[in-house]
Design a binder for these strands. Structure first.
Length: 414
RNA sequence: GUGGGCGUAGCUCAGGUGGUUAGAGCACUAGAUUGUGGAUCUAGAGGCCGCGGGUUCAAGUCCCGUCGCCCACCCCA
């Protein structure tokens, strides 16, 4: 069976599986639209710097997961690993800073060069909303609330836990970072190799370590909460207060740190234990520094991304496809007549299947196989009478219907 | 990048300690049934047993390598 294979970590989405994806996307799109988030589409590749600068030179995504290549003009191009940086770039290059707040919904493929496993692919799909130009905690609350509402609409909210944390503002983050580095340096020899490596480059990530020894050391580490300045504490308090007011349950998790460098203040993740090791199903946070690090005017932002594959797995079997009506001509004359008839009925909004070959029995079998709701039999007798025999494939009952009344009659099978 | 498991028909899988024409179920095609589907029966088609090398009189089976898939670490959506 060697030969043609899909590229590792990519996946064909056949119609049945794709219905599950569509349900996620359509639900999210509708919920987001009600909150005023309009859908936009972005290029799936950008200049490499767009991601390199914004995601942070030390993040895993940038250091080892980007699909980067040189195009024919010698430009360094990267397939987008996430959507937020692209929105920020569009905001700046498209002059949208004059029209804030910007509220957008995005969906499409993302690319990360990782080792595939359950719920993790190299080409995967996300839904994503971004709110830019709002510095108030009300923005964080709305964005999280929309996420929760989408999960609710998908029927999976009660299978997730909202974990939330604050990274504070730049001042708090700096103060905490200093305290953390001081503490960890005292235990440096006991840290795992990887964590020792992170001590200089990205110490906050050590809090996230799953290494046994590291975890024990982290237990005694200074708490984030103790180093927040008053402003950051108030901000976080307001966010939590808003969630309380909306009845959105959450768990504070001081170890929740975002992998991408541009986050500040609120960080959150809706997680599940039902998908194996890849538990994050919808995650995001606030990124007030992003637009300015890209060279644009200081513009606050909040947003999240949700994994469509993971959400689709969680929602389970997709809804069955709508049941068509099978058009079954018998004989040459009927075949000639069936095509325009099917065309007209389709034009009127009915789902009509017309097979390409076969006798009556074959076509009936096919009708059954595709789950047709009814069969429209068209033979010599019917043609002569200007009618068709319509058979209800569930009950087995059938009756003759004049062609002029056929369209009306068939609507009962929708 | 690191570990573990697995690669046999379109799909799900059998094929003790090597032994000659490689099997089943589902799906597919045809017929039983020339204007009536689902059920049943009959027949048929479908395999470089992932790939390459090695051991052997003999390899789907044992050994080495390689590629791929899955799961986990890591990271995240």
């Amino acid at each position: 069976m060697a030969g043609l294979q899909p590229v590792r970590g990519t996946h064909d989405l056949l119609p049945e599986e794709y219905r599950g994806h569509r349900r996620v996307v359509e639900t999210a799109r509708a919920v987001a639209a009600r909150a005023g988030y309009g859908e936009m589409s972005l290029p799936i590749f950008e200049f490499t710097e767009v991601f390199q600068r914004t995601l942070g030179e030390t993040s895993d995504v940038v250091t080892k997961e980007m699909y980067t290549f040189e195009d024919r003009g010698g430009e360094r191009i990267t397939l987008r690993p996430e959507a937020t940086a692209g929105v920020a770039r569009a905001l700046i290059s498209g002059g949208l800073t004059q029209d804030l707040p910007l509220k957008v919904f995005i969906t499409g493929p993302m690319f990360r060069y990782e080792r595939p496993q359950k719920g993790r692919l190299r080409q995967f799909h996300q839904i994503d909303i971004e709110l830019m130009g709002v510095a108030e905690p009300l923005g964080d609350i709305e964005v999280i609330a929309v996420g929760a509402q989408i999960l609710e609409a998908l029927g999976v909210l009660d299978r997730t836990t909202l974990e939330i944390n604050t990274l504070g503002d730049a001042e708090s983050r700096g103060a905490y970072r200093d305290a953390l580095v001081e503490y960890l340096s005292d235990h440096k020899s006991a840290l795992s190799e990887e964590s020792r490596d992170r001590l200089d480059r990205n110490p906050l990530r050590i809090l996230d370590s799953k290494n046994e020894g590291d975890r024990r050391i982290v237990e005694g580490a200074p708490q984030y909460g103790d180093h927040l300045n008053a402003e950051s504490r108030d901000f976080f308090g307001a966010v939590l207060g808003g969630l309380d007011a909306l009845g959105i349950a959450y768990v504070q998790n001081q170890r929740l740190v975002r992998g991408l460098d541009y986050y500040c203040h609120t960080a959150f993740e809706f997680t599940t234990t039902d998908l194996g090791a890849q538990g994050a199903v919808l995650a995001g946070g606030r990124y007030d520094g992003l637009v300015s690090t890209m060279g644009g005017p200081a513009t606050p932002g909040v947003g999240w991304a949700g994994g469509i594959e993971r959400l689709a797995m969680l929602t389970g079997a997709p809804e069955p496809a709508p049941r068509p009506i099978a058009m079954i001509p018998i004989g040459e004359a009927a075949i000639a007549a069936a095509l325009p008839l099917a065309h007209r009925l389709r034009g009127a909004g009915l789902a009509v299947d017309l097979g390409f070959r076969g006798n009556l029995q074959r076509r009936m079998k096919r009708a059954n196989k595709i789950g047709a709701r009814a069969a429209v039999l068209l033979g010599e007798d019917e043609l002569a009478a200007g009618a068709a025999t319509v058979r209800d494939l569930d009950s087995g009952e059938q009756e003759q219907v004049a062609l002029s009344a056929l369209q009306d009659y068939l609507t009962r099978f929708r």
